[in-house]
Simulated assay, not measured.
Amino acid sequence: MWLAVFGVLMIGIALAHFLFGQVTYIGGGEVNATMDSDLRFLNVLFVAYGAAFVWASRDVVGRAREINVLGLLFFVGAIGRVLAWILSGAPTPFYVAMLIVEFVIPVVHYFALRMLTTSSPAGAPASG
């Protein structure tokens, strides 16, 4: 259930950014037409990312590898935020908090999936 909710949340955030543009970025300020175009384009990919979580939530054990790949992408995105922080300065406190979430969620998913795929009910073989 959590992965489906997480995916729907990603889709909602991405659609808000896609439809309403830079005003949906906390502390984002003004952007030029090129950046607006790029941000809206990339949010289509964010919708697909959320949809992939919804898809994966239908068979968590069978799609554990895909869920971990999605988590890795989220984690690498957090590394991108750190790079931006180093090169461009500190973001708003909201994005600092998001950085923590983006580093923690993939790790939690990984270990939760590992427990699900290596444990089995009494007498049943482990899935995965």
Rank of each mutant, 00 (worst) to 15 (best):
G123S: 09
V69L: 11
V82Q: 13
G89K: 05
Y95Q: 05
A56V: 01
S37Y: 15
A97R: 00
A16F: 08
L83Y: 15
Y49I: 03
E102Y: 08
S119I: 05
L87F: 08
V44C: 03
G80E: 06
S57Y: 04
M98H: 09
L116R: 14
F111M: 07
A90M: 08
R58D: 00
L70P: 02
T24Y: 11
L72V: 12
N68W: 15
A90W: 07
R65N: 15
H109R: 15
A51F: 11
L116P: 14
L99I: 02
I26R: 06
E102K: 10
Y95H: 11
T34E: 15
P106R: 06
S57P: 04
L83V: 15
V107T: 01
L113M: 13
G123W: 13
L39I: 15
Y25E: 01
Y25F: 06
V31P: 09
F94C: 12
G71P: 10
N43I: 10
F41Q: 07
V101N: 11
G21K: 00
N43W: 01
R81P: 02
S37V: 13
G80Q: 02
F41L: 14
R63D: 04
T118N: 10
D59W: 04
A97K: 05
Y49Q: 06
F18Q: 00
T118C: 06
S37L: 14
L45R: 06
T92E: 15
S88Q: 02
D38L: 14
R63K: 12
V104D: 03
V96K: 04
Y110L: 05
V76D: 03
G50T: 04
V104R: 02
Y95T: 03
S57G: 12
R65I: 12
V101D: 09
V101Y: 11
S120M: 11
R40A: 03
L39P: 04
V108G: 08
M115I: 05
T24I: 13
D38W: 12
I105R: 01
S120G: 15
V104K: 07
V107H: 00
L45A: 08
L113D: 03
L73K: 08
G80N: 03
F20K: 03
D36P: 04
S57I: 11
S57D: 07
R58C: 04
P91H: 08
T118H: 12
S120T: 09
F111V: 09
A16N: 13
V101S: 06
V44H: 01
W55I: 13
V108W: 15
P91L: 08
L70R: 02
V69M: 07
R65Q: 14
L83H: 14
F18A: 02
V54L: 01
Y25M: 02
P106Y: 06
F18T: 00
G29Y: 10
A78K: 09
